[in-house]
Simulated scan of single mutants.
Amino acid sequence: MSIKAAIIPAAGSGTRLGSEIPKPFLPLGGAPILQHTLSQFINIPGMHQIIIATSAPYMEKVRAICEKLNAGHIQFDVIEGGSERQFSIQNALETLADEVELVAIHDAVRPFISEEVIVQCFDTAENYDGAIVAVRAKDTLKKVNTDLTILETPDRSAMWQAQTPQIFQKHIIIEANQKAIDEGFLGTDDASLVEYAGYEVKVVEGERDNFKITYPIDLKIAEFILKEKL
């Protein structure tokens, strides 16, 4: 069994949710969103280390959340994030334990990822350069120019909406992240960095309730889903 780690960038602001509190620390069913998210990773077979990158004022709060999880078998590391998500990931990669072989990167505000999908994504990444969770695009997509004129309607059957976790062999994500920094490439997700470095990434079909809590309506939907799961 591979030795696994998870990196959780948790420095996002709450601006689009109309809150001064960063999104990962907003309450969901009586606990911070981040706590729900972390709880999905602590029982994954082979999970050795979880690194949470957050802003300096919230580091102690994150440590308190980790203690509440009562997961003594996990090495928790709370680090300060960077000015961009990509730099937060770089800081986290430098904190990885030597023995870790596979690294998952997961958004702090996707609390409904299932353990089953996490395991499936790890299993796929173990046999390839990397794997990400994604869902099939359900809406017609339009490519437009700067004045919002439609240029193209891509074939929806080939379109997938990327989610997280995104899981990679440790040496590959370290190499890809460093290459992106060295060459000034800012990717839209971690898989884009690995693709930029010339590696192939597989897709694992995920679930639609693994959405990212971004807007006020998302928080209302999350409360409904949580009540349904209890």
Score class of each variant (00 low, 15 high):
residue 100 V to K: 07
residue 49 Q to N: 07
residue 101 E to I: 11
residue 68 K to R: 14
residue 138 K to Q: 15
residue 112 F to W: 08
residue 123 D to S: 06
residue 114 S to Y: 09
residue 89 I to K: 05
residue 42 I to L: 09
residue 55 S to N: 15
residue 63 R to I: 02
residue 55 S to G: 14
residue 67 E to Y: 06
residue 81 G to M: 05
residue 138 K to R: 15
residue 118 I to R: 09
residue 84 E to F: 12
residue 58 Y to G: 08
residue 80 E to R: 07
residue 54 T to D: 07
residue 116 E to S: 11
residue 61 K to A: 12
residue 116 E to K: 12
residue 107 D to I: 04
residue 65 I to L: 03
residue 60 E to A: 13
residue 95 T to Q: 12
residue 46 G to T: 00
residue 53 A to G: 10
residue 141 L to N: 09
residue 56 A to K: 12
residue 66 C to S: 09
residue 60 E to V: 11
residue 134 A to F: 05
residue 138 K to A: 13
residue 89 I to C: 07
residue 66 C to I: 06
residue 45 P to C: 09
residue 54 T to R: 03
residue 117 V to I: 14
residue 60 E to K: 12
residue 86 Q to P: 05
residue 96 L to K: 00
residue 141 L to A: 15
residue 85 R to F: 13
residue 142 K to E: 15
residue 134 A to I: 06
residue 57 P to C: 08
residue 96 L to V: 03
residue 96 L to A: 04
residue 77 D to W: 01
residue 79 I to V: 13
residue 100 V to L: 00
residue 50 I to Y: 00
residue 49 Q to P: 02
residue 92 A to T: 04
residue 50 I to N: 07
residue 56 A to L: 12
residue 121 C to S: 10
residue 50 I to A: 06
residue 113 I to E: 08
residue 43 N to K: 11
residue 113 I to N: 13
residue 50 I to C: 03
residue 134 A to V: 03
residue 141 L to F: 14
residue 96 L to N: 03
residue 51 I to E: 00
residue 131 A to Y: 01
